[in-house]
Nucleic acid binder design. Structure first.
Lengths: 138, 138
DNA sequence: TATTGTTATACTCTATAACTATA
DNA sequence: TATAGTTATAGAGTATAACAATA
């Protein structure tokens, strides 16, 4: 890496560090861990199978079991049996869960605050650069 | 936030997710957790007081005690008493620790791989944009 | 037999509170 | 009395292995 890339790598490290810390704090506002908030973020209006969540979160299925159990205890999600394949359990976000998720999003000011420091054109520039880095799939 | 900012916010989320996962894997290559590798990364050629590390890592002092203890067990760091103030314990990276740290850096291909997809000029552009977002202090 | 999810277990991260040693 | 670090403890995240239910 060149000197520019070195300084840039350090900046990305700082960005990620600040981002993670801000997300932790946003989740804590409603008494959730980052992992729990993240799981809520992966729930759709429809229910989703546990296995799909484990794949997307790139963690073990037993981990999803525990996260969902804690969220279920607080009434934020519910497990429903899949009618077609009774091995599968689908996770459903409850109205209370949707409220909490909205609260986390509201408390997570990092993206809008930081991106808000850029003009529209700069945001488009950044978008193009990140797309090149991450690939169009992202 | 505008639509551009929405798509951008999603991209930054994906970037952070991929970055964190890549760092976890790099640390695991040498059998460390991300937190342990991160602590190693904050050690300088000189020794550093535990308290300073806690401040920089933004975690409790008792957490640093445990992280350092685990690293010390593996011979990667050592505690040395501060000669001027004997309450203070300074953390020193050992040669073995420096080797491991180098290995983690080598295994953490994310920055060079992703930033390498950009031209020099694009890297400079990105640097400017991030500096505007994070402030010159970063 | 293969798959989905759970349970039991173990290790790490992290914080709080109580403690020790030093200043 | 105040500060630096440790210890004890507890809750959460995470994975592995063994297990139950279903396909």
């Amino acid at each position: 890496m060149t000197e520019v890339a070195d300084a840039l790598a350090r900046q990305v490290w700082d960005l990620v560090f600040a981002y993670d810390a801000a997300y932790d704090r946003a989740a804590q506002v409603v008494g959730l861990s980052a992992a729990q908030a993240c799981l809520l973020e992966h729930l759709s209006p429809d229910s989703r199978p546990m296995g799909e969540l484990a794949l997307e979160l790139r963690c073990d299925a037993s981990n999803v079991t525990q996260l969902v159990s804690r969220l279920e205890t607080r009434g934020l999600v519910a497990r429903v049996a899949d009618p077609d394949d009774r091995r599968i359990k689908r996770v459903l976000i409850t109205p209370a869960g949707a409220d909490v998720r909205r609260a986390v999003r509201g408390a997570f000011g990092f993206p809008s605050e930081r991106l808000g420091l850029l003009t529209d054109q700069e945001q488009r520039q950044l978008y193009g650069l990140l797309r090149k880095m991450l690939g169009p799939a992202s």
